[in-house]
Computed example of a mutant assay.
Amino acid sequence: MKCVWGALVVVAVSLISGCGVADRTTAGHATAASATTSSSPLPTSSSLSPTTTTSTTRTSPPRTPSTSGPVQSDPDLGYNPILTREGAGISAVNCRLPAWSANQAAAEAFYRAAIECHNDSWRPALAGFGITLTAPSLWAGARGADYNGACGANASGREAFYCSQGGEIVMPYDTMKPITEYGVGYALAVLSHEYGHHLQRVTGLMTAFQARVAALDYSDPAVDLLNRRLELQAWCFSGMFYGTNTGRGSITASLTKQANDNNSGAGDRPGERRFHGTSKNVANWFGWGQHPSLDPNASVTPSMYECNPWAARDAGWLE
């Protein structure tokens, strides 16, 4: 399944949004927007069909991403404290999700339970860095057109997004419904990615990103690279949740396979601005979050230290 996420950056107010749903697209993306966006480029959407990638297969560039040592030119992003401690993982939890049913109330209950699972998994890890995890709020109303939260009305037509200004994950039932028809694991992948953006907010990464982008001309290619790094990191954080919790409670191997299927086609479309990364790299960073080694048999565990595209010296991993 292929999905594209565009990014809109206006000053320092952030809206993290999902991809369009013209053809049952999936997953989310990061954009930054003010309440008024008419003078700025709008995010674009894409469509694609499901992939057949298995939960244990991902493509890889020739070298692993290098995340060792501080990045002196980027201390706020590449050397954020959570990215500097080797082996710092998250907690395994016995996640219990309610049964999925095709109605708004059941979908909202499922999303709320999934957020709690992410909270429980991430809270102790962040506490180890002196960070108190404030849970994201959720808006999961029946119609996306009815949303009018901290980031304003959802004029982009996206099926899901994260509003950094309000710390809110927005998952409207009507726009998410086509995605769930592929399987509830696809919807869970969308939510988990948006949760990754919330982690960027509570750790200060989002603020540093916004400040960096605001200092640049919007047409500067450096803006593209900053956005790709933000997106790829959110995928890696999401991968950590799956890598730590697959096989526990409701996070079955089947749900994780659907997440891999979803994310293996979630990159930029040809001809669009390079804000999100290639589909190969989306899959790579999501997979790296689950299992940070090119050797599938290596005994490794998910680690925030490994989710550092701000420090990746291999440019191929940032395409």
Rank of each mutant, 00 (worst) to 15 (best):
T59Q: 14
F129K: 00
N148Q: 14
G144E: 09
T84H: 04
V93C: 11
H118P: 04
P136A: 11
T37H: 06
A105Y: 05
S73G: 12
T132S: 05
S101L: 02
C151D: 02
T36N: 10
Q104T: 13
A135L: 07
Y111I: 07
L126I: 03
L42M: 14
I82T: 05
A107L: 13
I115S: 00
T36A: 12
G128W: 09
Y79R: 14
S91F: 08
P136Q: 11
S38E: 14
Q104H: 13
P65R: 02
Y79D: 15
C117R: 03
D74V: 07
Q72G: 09
W139V: 00
S60R: 09
T56L: 07
S66P: 07
P43D: 00
G130F: 04
C151R: 01
G141K: 02
G69Y: 08
S55K: 09
S39R: 11
G130H: 04
I131H: 04
R63N: 12
S101W: 00
L83H: 09
A142C: 05
P136H: 08
W100D: 02
R96T: 15
A107T: 07
S34E: 11
A107V: 07
T56C: 05
T36R: 09
G149N: 02
S60Q: 08
C117Y: 03
T59I: 13
S60W: 08
R96S: 14
P98W: 03
G144N: 11
G149K: 01
G78S: 07
P98D: 05
Q104F: 12
P98R: 10
S40D: 13
L77S: 00
V71K: 03
R112A: 03
G69P: 01
P70F: 15
I131S: 04
P98T: 09
T44Q: 15
D74M: 04
R58V: 05
